[in-house]
């Protein structure tokens, strides 16, 4: 019986969410009196997982897995879970992990709970807290199957360095037919994604038009942040759909969310409320966002944002 964690990487480099998932898996393993095995696909620097609590890493190196495919990746994790006799499998909440998790659940006959925000409150029955109703509530959910899959919400547990070391073992399971093949990928290079970002700077209709988005982009650049927008902004074609956040867009669970010229409609707030600290900049003191924010400036974005960008840049330069 062990805890298996799938550690996601991008071009060989582990994502921060991978380290978080290992940290979380370690906490569960400690409670269970068990160990953490990580499974990594075409990733480098595997020993680094030891620092977060993995005692063993299964290394998969296969060119057929260079491009993500939910079915083949699920099959790899399934084979690893079987070999390790894993009773708990931990994955993160990236688009790819959420894509493969239900396939893995059926393959392993394991109960799967997504959007989990805490370590289990109980191991028997195995009970975890997850968000539901698009962040308007939490559901304490028990998993009744022998094997359990926990999908951890990004940034909900954090990184815990335990300073251990991990042994690395080669692992090469047979792959199924993929069924879905990637023809082309269209992805901005070197841009922080909303899913991986620790800070998101988001703009709403208050910015008046796409020509003003340098305000958002400059601020985001200073903070190393991803850029996002409200739904009407993407509906109007000012920004791409991929940037739309909220109940019907991408969820945001960052450490810091800065909303510029966004009113704070319930559907917008639902999607971003899992963020830890929220800052709003809006001309209208009555805008509902002020009720949901931690810090606010009542003011004109066109004046406030350049100033804030400048001050933050000075701050960063000083603390670099």
């Amino acid at each position: 019986m062990s805890v298996l964690v799938y550690t996601e990487s991008e071009k060989g480099k582990f994502k921060k969410a991978a380290f978080e998932a290992v940290s979380y898996a370690k906490a569960i393993a400690d409670e269970m009196g068990s160990n953490v095995t990580a499974i990594a696909i075409n990733a480098n620097d595997l020993e680094s997982l030891g620092n977060y609590g993995a005692s063993k890493v299964l290394e998969v190196a296969d060119n057929n897995l260079d491009v993500f495919n939910a079915k083949t990746y699920a099959a790899v994790i399934e084979a690893a879970a079987k070999q390790e006799n894993a009773s708990v499998i931990v994955i993160s909440s990236s688009a790819d992990s959420k894509y493969l998790a239900p396939l893995l659940a059926v393959g392993l006959e394991a109960g799967y709970v997504s959007n989990v925000v805490e370590t289990p409150s109980n191991l028997s029955p195995f009970t975890v807290k997850r968000t539901a109703f698009t962040n308007k509530a939490f559901a304490n959910t028990k998993i009744t199957t022998d094997k359990k899959i926990v999908g951890l919400s990004n940034n909900s547990f954090g990184l815990v360095e335990s300073g251990g070391s991990a042994s690395v073992e080669a692992f090469s399971p047979t792959l199924p037919e993929s069924g879905v093949t990637v023809e082309s990928v269209d992805k901005a290079i070197g841009k922080v994604t909303i899913a991986d970002a620790e800070v998101v700077v988001s703009g709403g209709r208050g910015l008046k038009g796409p020509e003003n988005w340098h305000l958002v982009e400059n601020l985001a650049e200073v903070l190393g942040a991803a850029t996002a927008c409200s739904k009407p902004v993407s509906d109007l074609g000012w920004r791409s759909h991929g940037e739309h956040v909220g109940q019907t867009g991408k969820p945001v669970a960052t450490n810091l969310y800065i909303a510029i010229g966004i009113s704070g409609a319930i559907q917008h707030l639902a999607g971003i409320s899992a963020s830890k600290v929220k800052v709003v900049i809006n001309t209208d003191p009555e805008a509902p966002f002020f009720k949901a924010a931690d810090y606010g400036i009542v003011g004109d974005a066109f004046e406030v944002v350049p100033k804030l960008t400048e001050k933050l840049k000075a701050f960063k330069d000083q603390n670099a």
Binding site: G111, K136, N140, G296
Partner: peptide, 17 residues
């Protein structure tokens, strides 16, 4: 395979600064 046993609402937020 799973069951929601109870629900909670997020803790009320403090006032904006």
């Amino acid at each position: 395979e799973t069951k929601a046993v109870s629900y909670e609402k997020p803790a009320p937020k403090g006032a904006v600064k």
